[in-house]
Design a protein around this nucleic acid. Structure first.
Lengths: 377, 377
DNA sequence: CTGAAAGCGCTTACAG
DNA sequence: CTGAAAGCGCTTACAG
C-alpha cells in the first residue's frame, strides 16, 4: 500500500480552485477525485488552505479554531469524504479507542446478549469492540489474547477466571486494563485480583438458589447436568454451590449424579438419559444452563416422563425461549445484557479515571415456572 | 500516554547483563522490569544487541536473519514479554489485519452464528473482527460504518442491500473492499454492484419454497408474519417471493394478510393473533424467520389452535431449537454459519489477490417437520 | 488563533 | 546478513 520512501502526492489539484463554490456542488466524495488513494489530513489542509495542525484541531478540538477557518475545513472534509486514519491517530495518541473481548463462543444466546450490551454501550462512548472466541479452549484463548493485544486494544475483557498461564503473562506485559467477567471469585492464585476487577455473578449462589428451591419442594434425590468443568470455573462453581447446599441439608450428591456435557441441546438430552438410568432415580435435575435444561426437558418429553409431575428441571440463564415453551422453564435469571453494559461502563470509567474499579457482583434471582414442582408421592 | 516530544527511555538497563543466563530464568515478563511502559521494539533490539530493523525482520521475516541472531532476538522478546504495537505496524504497513462487520443485532442466533463463522475463519488467517450493530437503524449503521472506517479496517462486511446514502458514500470514499451479505440482489441503483460482491441467499426463493410447500399441501388461504420491511430488503424479498408464487398459482395474498412485526417471540404472537381474526381465516402462515414462527406457534398453542391440523406454520432459518420442540418447525434452512465462513474466505482472497470476487448465492432448502400439513377439511 | 516540526513505533528500500 | 534512516498519517508542545 505505501509507495516506498517517496512521500504521497497531495490530492487537491483538481478541487482547489472551486473552494468557494463547494456548497453548491456535490457535498460528498467528489467525482473529480478519481485518485486511487483515500484523502489524508494533508489533502484537507491543502484544500482548506491551512496547516495540518489546524485541521487536526478543527476535528478533535473545534472551539480552539476560529469559526470561518473551521467552516472551510469542515467543507473540505465533506468534499473529500475525509475519514481520519485510525492507525496513525492511535499511534500519536497512545490509545486506539478499541476494546478487546474474548468469549467462549458467540453461538450461545447468553454470550451474544452480553456482547451486544457491551458493544452498544462501548460504541455509544466512541469505543469499538474487537471480538474473538475460543470455543472453550484456553490455548486458543491465549492466541486470541495475543492477536487482540497486537491490535493495540486499550483494554481487554475476559470471561471467567480460568485462563492459561501464558494468557495471564500476556495481559500483564501489555499493561492495559483487564476485566474478568461472569464470575465474582478467582481461585487461581496467580491472578492478581487486586488489579483485576471482577464483574459478574456469584455462580455458587446459582447452584444454591436451585438447590434451595428444589429442597423446599420436598425433593431428596438429585441429579445435575453441568457444562464441562475442566477449564470453566463458572461451571465448577455452579456444581459446587448446588452440592454444598444439599450437603448443608444433610443430602449427598454422588459423583455419578453429576453428568458433564458439552453445551448444546444434545448435551442436555444425553445428560438426562444418563440420569434417568440411575437408581434411585433423581426426582429433580439442575442444569448448568438453559440450553442443557431445555435439552433435558425435550428428552424427558421424548421419554414420556411427565415434567414436573415425575421430574423437576431447573436451568440457569433465563433465555427468552424459556418463558415461551410449555411448560415454562424454572431457571435462575442472569442479567447478561446488563452484565455487558456494566462491563462497558466500568471499563470506560477505568480508562478515563485510571483508577482500578471495584468488583461488582450482579444480583440474580430464581424464576419458578412449570418445570419444577413437588416430587412424585 | 505519550510523554510529549522527548523520546521514550530504553528499558534494558537492568537486564542487559544477564543475556546469557536468560534461558534458565523466568522466560516470561521479567520481574525486574518494573518500568511502567510496555517494551518496544527498541528495547528488544537493545537487549539483543542488534538494530530495530533486524528485530523487525526476525519477527516478520525470520529466514532472512541469521540463526544465532534470531535466537538472541527471540529470547529477548520472550524475556521482555514484547508484543508489537499494532497501531504502529498498521501505519507502516498500510493494513491493520482487521475486518469490520456491521450486523443488525447480535442478539439473534442467526446473526450470532454467522458472526461466529466469520470471526473464527478470519482469525484463523490472522485477521481480527471489529463488530458493530445498529438495531435495524440505517442511521445508526452510518455511524457504525464511520467508527469502523476510522479504525482503519482493511475491509467491511454489511448485511443486506438497504443502506443509507451516507453509508455508501463513506465506504466508497474509504476505498476498501466492501462485501454485502444475506442477499443476492440489490435494488437501489446507487449501489455499484459491479464492485460490491454479494454473498448471501436468494430471499425471494425463501418465500417461494414456503409457498410451494403450502400450496402442494392444498392450502388456499394464507397469512404472513414478516419482519419490518422498511429498511430491510431481506424481509421485503421474502414477502415478495411468497406473494409472487401464490399469484402464479392464481391466489391473491391481500395486504391485510401480511403483518409486519418486530423481531421477537412477541412479534410472532401478535402477528398470529391478528391473522387469526381475519375471515376467511388463513389455514397456513409463513413467517419471515424462525423466531417469529416460534412466537406464532406458541401463540397458537395458547389459543388452543391445533398445529398443524387447524393451522400450518412455516418459518425461515432453521434455528437449533426448531428441530427440538414439539411439533418440530417446518422451515427454510439457511446455512448461516457457512455464510460467515464463505464471507471470510472471500474477503481474505480479495485482500490478497486484489481482484473483486464473484457473487455467491448459497443453496437453501425447505425442511418439513410437524408444523405443516394439509388444511382442515 | 495558527504553523513548523518533532514524535508516536513500526517497516523496508537502500547501501554496505 | 545487518544497520541507518526515511516514511506511514496523525497529534501537540512550543513559538509566534
Amino acid at each position: 500500500m505505501t509507495s516506498g520512501l517517496l512521500p504521497r502526492g497531495i490530492l487537491y489539484f483538481a478541487t482547489l480552485l472551486d473552494i468557494h463554490t463547494m456548497t453548491t456542488s456535490n457535498e460528498h466524495a467528489s467525482p473529480s477525485m478519481s485518485n486511487d488513494e483515500r484523502p489524508r489530513l494533508a489533502d484537507v489542509a491543502a484544500l482548506a488552505g491551512v496547516s495540518t495542525a489546524t485541521v487536526s484541531r478543527a476535528l478533535s478540538n473545534p472551539d480552539v479554531v476560529k469559526g470561518p477557518t473551521r467552516e472551510r475545513i469542515l467543507q473540505a472534509v465533506a468534499r473529500l469524504g475525509y475519514v481520519p486514519d485510525g492507525a496513525a491517530r492511535a499511534l500519536a495518541l497512545g490509545r486506539a479507542r478499541m476494546v478487546g473481548a474474548i468469549v467462549p463462543t458467540l453461538d450461545n444466546a447468553i454470550f451474544a446478549r452480553a456482547v451486544q450490551g457491551l458493544q452498544s454501550t462501548l460504541s455509544g462512548a466512541g469505543y469499538q469492540l474487537l471480538i474473538s472466541s475460543h470455543e472453550y479452549s484456553l490455548a486458543a484463548e491465549t492466541e486470541s489474547a495475543r492477536a487482540l493485544l497486537e491490535r493495540a486494544v486499550d483494554a481487554l475483557v475476559l470471561v471467567g477466571a480460568d485462563h492459561a498461564h501464558e494468557t495471564w503473562e500476556l495481559v500483564r506485559a501489555s499493561r492495559i486494563p483487564v476485566l474478568i467477567t461472569w464470575t465474582n471469585a478467582v481461585d487461581a492464585s496467580e491472578f492478581l485480583t487486586a488489579s483485576t476487577p471482577l464483574i459478574g455473578f456469584d455462580n455458587r449462589l446459582v447452584g444454591k438458589l436451585a438447590a434451595e428451591h428444589l429442597l423446599s419442594l420436598g425433593h431428596r434425590t438429585f441429579g445435575m447436568i453441568s457444562g464441562l468443568t475442566r477449564q470453566n470455573d463458572r461451571a465448577r462453581h455452579r456444581v459446587d454451590g448446588f452440592r454444598t447446599t444439599l450437603a448443608d441439608a444433610g443430602l449427598r450428591l454422588p459423583e455419578a449424579n453429576v453428568v458433564e456435557q458439552p453445551f448444546g441441546f444434545d448435551g442436555g438430552r444425553a445428560g438426562l438419559k444418563h440420569l434417568m438410568q440411575l437408581r434411585p432415580r433423581p426426582s429433580a435435575v439442575f442444569c448448568g444452563n438453559d440450553v442443557l435444561a431445555l435439552g433435558a426437558l425435550f428428552e424427558a418429553q421424548s421419554m414420556k416422563i411427565d415434567v414436573p409431575r415425575e421430574l423437576s428441571i431447573v436451568g440457569c440463564d433465563n433465555l427468552p425461549i424459556s418463558s415461551q415453551i410449555t411448560p415454562g422453564l424454572s431457571t435462575v435469571l442472569l442479567p447478561t445484557y446488563e452484565l455487558g453494559q456494566r462491563t462497558a461502563l466500568t471499563l470506560l470509567d477505568w480508562l478515563t479515571s485510571e483508577r482500578v474499579p471495584a468488583n461488582l457482583c450482579l444480583p440474580i434471582e430464581l424464576v419458578v415456572r412449570g418445570t419444577s414442582g413437588p416430587p412424585p408421592a
